[in-house]
Design a protein around this nucleic acid. Sequence first.
DNA 1: TTTTGACTATTATATTAAAAAAGTCAATAA
DNA 2: TTATTGACTTTTTTAATATAATAGTCAAAA
Lengths: 210, 210
Amino acid sequence: MDSKQELIIERAIQRFAHFGIQKTTMNEIADDLAMSKPSVYYYFPDKTSLIIAVVERIINEYLDRLSKIFEQSESISKSLEAMLELRIEFLERYFMLHLEDNTEQSLCREDVRSSIIQIRSNEINLLAGLLEKGKEQGLLSVSDSNHTAELFINTLTGIAMWVFSEQKKQLIPDMASFQSLLNKQKEISGIFLKGISCPDSDSGEQITRK
Amino acid sequence: MDSKQELIIERAIQRFAHFGIQKTTMNEIADDLAMSKPSVYYYFPDKTSLIIAVVERIINEYLDRLSKIFEQSESISKSLEAMLELRIEFLERYFMLHLEDNTEQSLCREDVRSSIIQIRSNEINLLAGLLEKGKEQGLLSVSDSNHTAELFINTLTGIAMWVFSEQKKQLIPDMASFQSLLNKQKEISGIFLKGISCPDSDSGEQITRK
DNA sequence: TTTTGACTATTATATTAAAAAAGTCAATAA
DNA sequence: TTATTGACTTTTTTAATATAATAGTCAAAA
């Protein structure tokens, strides 16, 4: 059975994802759970700590999914593709939290930021692991897996920021925008992979150019 | 000898680049040139048209420089590297105009935006030309040069947006930030180039991995 | 240990007044 | 006719302030 803390986090996620962090009050979360605000504050000393708990929950869920993808990796390119799709899934689901751009003020506080950066670094580690594996199998040619993984992920984030900055009229981008972003990321990913592959090897299946 | 219009544009560029568009008034520009505000309005019907003239001037100067770089291209990778350095030079010089991110409100008006997009498309054309040349020489393997050029430039812009969003405390990023951005872009560029090169050819000199 | 009503402190929002800047125009000079 | 300007109006920003909303506290109670 879920503890009170868990219930609070889950409700907070729901409201944050729908209305955004700023537009969600501690009172609303308390009311949702038919409890009083001081009760919520009994479990979380302040809103910031709740925000951090929510963000960590979300990112950890993403990381779990990602690590499973990488475990059952049949090829590097397939893994990357699945990773991109997973990223888009989470990006869409939690868009209102603005975990990738630095729009959301609540996430720009130094304590929250450092928490996010710290937990996010695991994504780089996981990807670096995949690259390292590819390296050992003689499929990839990278000197610093961690560095390359970081570069790749930052590129993905950059493209996302660029796509969304192009059309920031809408509060939430439409499905087509996410699809378009995914396509761009897949293209980049394909070129990137070919760029770091060993000339004499297929990384999984042949990487075909558009 | 410079016409009055030119003088106004040049002064506007100076003030825009230093104080930003919003913090520059038509009166200040007029005063700089020891003329009255209505005189300025005689040459430019409104501030927006002056902004457009300024932006076009800047981008055209960039495009001129870029086309010269591509003309005397000794290798594709050298050309790309010079392009990146040129981009950083302009990014730094005109950072206060925020030509790349969509921060500056004055540049988000539909008429201004479309003007920028239109003139900016020439950058893609120039790069596409370079890729096309490489393709004809059997150095590159791209199906749609224009599409690939667009993807590459958007990636560069995305990385820039990401880098600057990471540290938006400062009004103008310090030199180290620009240098760091340039390094990242060069890395990506290297991988990208290797990814679109023909397996059996050197594109200019060997592309070495870090 | 957990919960809450009633409270305070802080922050966000809405309102309005004042200031600044954009933009106009009739008159004037070259 | 082209270019310029002082004096003007209109629009937009900014600043100040009041108001409301929300974060956060605490003593009391279950």
